[in-house]
Design a binder for these strands. Structure first.
Lengths: 210, 210
DNA sequence: GAAAACATACCATACGGTCGGTATGAGTCA
DNA sequence: TGACTCATACCGACCGTATGGTATGTTTTC
């Protein structure tokens, strides 16, 4: 895959650098407004390299969504919220973690696949589906903890499942990002996560000293 | 403003028709991917008419956000969820109404200003702010009912306000739209509204027979 | 020496925007 | 009442550039 040169040791990383550039620039400008030259300039490669690695702009979009799924799942797998032995504590730690990483510029913490899915859900089913796989692949990891917590605490759910609550968590995140963008204020994304945390505590009958 | 001709009675409506086209096409393709010619074709006008009414594509974006704010506020003002005399019932009816109108094609019920804000929050502060005004102007109408319900039921809130809950409601909607797009399934947007309804009932201590 | 990994020059078209012109109707005044 | 003026609404050809994509050549590694 990667084949560095003695003269230019970064050679062979063009694909990765393009994907990283796509991750950063598409989150800032959106998919349609991002040009291939934007990506080449940011990745410091030429158009030839781009079309050597990706057959089209749409193919890059699919690859960027998959890259996002791979890198974020590694990132979240290594995150500290998995520490607690109690599954419910892990769920709440997840929400707290998501809240904690909402900082800095909006385009640095918002979700690439949410942004792309919003834009291309009609025009490019391939990108849309890749975004869906990335997004729901992530919710599945949270769903496992929710289900364990539900069973361990003997919660009999009427009207909701671990799967739906995991998706709802994702929806609150995505929606928070949109409000934050519309108001140009990351605090609005954190605010909705506070409501989500309160909701989860309610669902699991968490008492003050629990 | 509008000055119809005997031969062409629709004359004078070009601006409205362009705004309606913008509403429909931008929701489907996004702002950047929507071309001025797309809009002219859909509105059945020429480029000359477009640039007579809007100085630039960005100006159209601002006008489209404002048009969205005006039309949706009229739509929601006339909606049936204002019927109940009990303010909390109106809040719950609002959520139920939002859930009920999630039907048909995704681009028919999703939010224009949420879509646009997502795309242009960096590249066009003017459009972004117009989207924010539309979005938060709408949440303000819900906030009034929430605040009335809070007082009437003697709810002492710790950690949340009527304003934040109104915004959270909007976040759940916007996030639900994104999940629905990513999964190509409107049911996911409705699912999150069910969680939201359950959360609101909890916040207001709604009993079974309340 | 084969194949991958680039680089460079080039192309057709699409796109945002401009510009001069035309059509229509409202107001004015002799 | 009708000629005149003026502003608005709209038309459609044109322009410069940006953009996605291609074709071909060169370097590097195995």
């Amino acid at each position: 895959m990667s084949r560095p040169t003695k003269q230019s040791p970064e050679r062979g990383n063009a694909r990765i650098r393009l994907l990283e550039a796509a991750r950063d620039i598409i989150r800032e400008k959106g998919f349609a407004a991002t040009t291939i030259e934007d990506l080449c300039k940011a990745a410091d490669v030429t158009k030839g390299a781009f079309f050597h690695h990706f057959g089209s702009k749409e193919a890059l979009g699919v690859a960027a969504a998959e890259f996002w799924g791979e890198t974020t799942s590694a990132y979240f797998a290594a995150a500290p919220y998995h520490g607690p032995s109690e599954p419910l504590a892990r769920v709440l730690a997840y929400v707290a973690f998501r809240k904690a990483i909402i900082a800095g510029e909006l385009q640095e913490f918002t979700c690439l696949v949410g942004t792309m899915a919003q834009e291309v859900f009609v025009s490019s089913p391939d990108i849309r589906d890749a975004c869906g796989r990335s997004m729901f692949g992530h919710t599945a990891t949270l769903e496992a903890d929710i289900e364990m917590a539900r069973r361990k605490r003997g919660i009999t759910t009427t009207g909701w499942t671990a799967e739906s609550l995991a998706r709802h968590t994702q929806a609150v995140l995505q929606g928070g990002f949109i409000l934050a963008k519309a108001a140009n204020d990351p605090a609005l994304a954190r605010e909705s996560l506070d409501h989500l945390e309160r909701y989860i505590r309610y669902l699991f009958n968490v008492t003050e000293d629990d």
